[in-house]
Design a binder for these strands. Structure first.
Length: 276
DNA sequence: CGGTAGACCTGACCGC
DNA sequence: TGCGGTCAGGTCTACC
């Protein structure tokens, strides 16, 4: 489900719900694992700590606590939802709710994930740079990153450009939807070899990546099926998609039918006229 | 090292 | 109504 814009909107909606500054009473685990087994002892050690800051690195949500930290990844279908303080009977757990974080304010943060490709891990100490999940990640596209930097990473790449920009070592946050979108915006075919994308084209592509991610963040992300912000709101960027999911429909730029094919195992969309 | 197929998991949808 | 096949926003691993 979630690429950078979706994760960023979850982060903002958690922030808006007042999660930062609240105290963790208890993390209730409704099963033993997601993609990886929970370390119950490490998680229990975070009871009583305050959530100081919720931030994001790549597609990871990071909860910085008083002493330790939690790392959360939403995989394909993960979501966090905020259940407000409730007097009397609480909320019933839904199918696929796996984690309930009880805050002392009475608020409950619920992690829901049907396919369980997500990750939830407590990390001892606040210094997350050594976490195995974050090690080796490339640069944040919305910070100091540009076409030069992209060009340098792609120069010796033999893979196709679409796979390359989805590689989190090259640049983080771009997934299957925004890869197709950015390549369309830059006029580059997804099947082109990465090392055949010129410096100028890398400039346009880096710009396109930044632009599409920015716009998607501003629209609350793309809700294709599961994705929700923590307050339950859907995103709206799916209305503005140029090629993703539009196979056979006419290109918004030239009216030719949009093409679709599996590239690197993922469904990919492009316009053969507008993209070279 | 780089590249790619397969694995992980559930649910929705389509054709028979 | 049921069954089998396909597909889905991500990443790890095994293998060449």
């Amino acid at each position: 489900m979630p690429e950078l814009p979706e994760v960023e909107n979850v982060r903002r909606s958690l922030q808006a719900a007042g999660v930062e500054g609240s105290k963790v009473e208890r993390v209730e685990l409704l099963r033993a694992n997601l993609r990886t087994p929970f370390d119950q002892r490490l998680i229990a050690k975070t009871h009583g700590q305050r959530i100081e800051r919720v931030w994001r690195r790549a597609k990871f949500l990071l909860f910085e606590l008083s002493k330790d930290a939690w790392i959360s990844h939403l995989g394909m279908t993960g979501s966090w939802r905020v259940e407000p303080k409730r007097t009397g009977v609480g909320f019933a757990a839904l199918k696929h709710d796996h984690i309930r974080v009880h805050l002392s304010s009475g608020m409950v943060l619920v992690y829901h994930d049907p396919r369980r490709f997500g990750v939830f891990e407590a990390h001892p100490g606040k210094d997350l740079v050594h976490s195995k999940w974050l090690r080796g990640l490339g640069q944040e596209p919305l910070e100091s990153w540009d076409g030069e930097s992209l060009h340098a990473s792609l120069r010796h790449r033999e893979s196709v450009i679409k796979s390359a920009i989805m590689d989190q070592k090259v640049v983080v946050g771009v997934g299957n939807i925004y890869a197709s979108e950015a390549l369309f915006m830059a006029g580059i075919r997804p099947t082109r070899k990465a090392n055949r994308v010129s410096r100028e084209e890398c400039g346009r592509l880096a710009q396109a990546i930044r632009k599409v991610l920015d716009k998607a963040i501003a629209s609350g992300g793309s809700t294709i099926r599961d994705y929700r912000q923590a307050d339950g709101q859907k995103g709206e960027f799916q209305e503005q998609l140029l090629v993703y999911g539009r196979a056979g429909l006419s290109c918004r730029q030239c009216a030719q039918p949009v093409k679709q094919k599996v590239i690197g195992g993922r469904s990919s969309f492009w316009c053969a006229t507008c993209q070279r």
